[in-house]
Design a protein around this nucleic acid. Sequence first.
DNA 1: TCAACATGTGACGGTTACGTGACAACTGTC
DNA 2: GACAGTTGTCACGTAACCGTCACATGTTGA
Lengths: 230, 230
Amino acid sequence: MADADTPLVLIVDDEVAQLALLSYNLKAAGFRVVTAKDGDEALLAVAEQGPDVILLDWMLPRLSGLEVCRQLKATPSGRDAAIIMVSARSEESDRVRGLETGADDYIVKPYSVAELIARVRANLRRLRPTATGQALEVGDIRLDPDSHRVTRGEQVLHLGPTEFRLLGALMERPGKVWTREALLDRVWGRDIYIDTRTVDVHVGRLRKTLLSQGGEDPIRTVRGAGYAMG
Amino acid sequence: MADADTPLVLIVDDEVAQLALLSYNLKAAGFRVVTAKDGDEALLAVAEQGPDVILLDWMLPRLSGLEVCRQLKATPSGRDAAIIMVSARSEESDRVRGLETGADDYIVKPYSVAELIARVRANLRRLRPTATGQALEVGDIRLDPDSHRVTRGEQVLHLGPTEFRLLGALMERPGKVWTREALLDRVWGRDIYIDTRTVDVHVGRLRKTLLSQGGEDPIRTVRGAGYAMG
DNA sequence: TCAACATGTGACGGTTACGTGACAACTGTC
DNA sequence: GACAGTTGTCACGTAACCGTCACATGTTGA
């Protein structure tokens, strides 16, 4: 693939004119581009193409951009992409919510093409090394990113979004000790300032759910360091 | 507490009041801080101190922040630092120029201290992806920094944070004799005032754990000098 | 053999890090 | 608008951990 090194940008917007405009400009700037017109198409494109950067419109039919963002961040390939929320609103609360949901950056309409491209470039520089896909398994615990489902043995466990992502992070590298900071960065997203003790609380809740049907505690606390799976 | 592991932040601003304010807050947040009042000082500080994060004011006498940014990114130590442009202007063209010049982030005055610190932390995390350390082995003892685990033979041993770091230091250079002072420096951190006899106590505790499942004492006491592994 | 010094180690109080229940804010739903 | 679900923060209790001391033991040199 001659173009494999060229960064791939996924544009998600329901307005075709907007798609065409962005697509044209980004291609002119030297990126590869794929597009999606709604959340489902976006999720599909992410799974199939594994883009490096996702430009995600706030207003989408069916699933809101916010919800799509949340779902993307819960999938292995989506987690490794930088998500830039694009919004017509400029209220601070939106910005905060966008970043809290796991977006890596936020850009407000109207914006110039130059700014957009600069943002894309800046976020590309921050990309993490790509990780694997597929369902994760540690011991008798199984996490399926696609169906958003967690099971222990035969039991299906119900987790909130945050705990789901937390478990996902822990399971992705079994044994690895994550510091609270690293988990905040990974699970909650960057550019957000949350007390590290919050991680403890969520680990506690996660443990409670994982232990609800009996069994060993699969999460190891490493005093002075953080948490690890297995 | 201000040991070499504490991130170093370089603040570049021509207003002394601003320098003092930022310096105070960043120190309170646990960072080490150095300051520079213009581009030349900044370049010098970068070369000499190798900061992890640079807070770069847009408006500087002589060289503009933009130009300083460009020059910094052209030096070896500057390339390794995250540059956060600080600007009173909010025009998008500035943001674009800042990011395109190689700045890693951009913050617009007025900003809250919490936001600034969050940005600094976020950029630090981005900068230092978890260094996946290689497991250390001496004899039948194995220490894995990644999973924070110590085993002797098949037995998993439990160590407190300090003993873990102590063992790590000893194992990193098998045979090397460490003075108590050197161990204090390495394990406890610089600028800390602790009785050297404390090292003896921790070595004793470490020995006790290592010997708990039988086997030879892997730590050698060198009378008048210190301790060594193997 | 003895004094002087270096090291080993049990005990102890003080501190810190962690687990967790409670709570308020907020969301989406009916 | 009542309601259930989720989230981040706080306060409190507890157990682990830490640094120091005191004394025991070992080593050195005269």
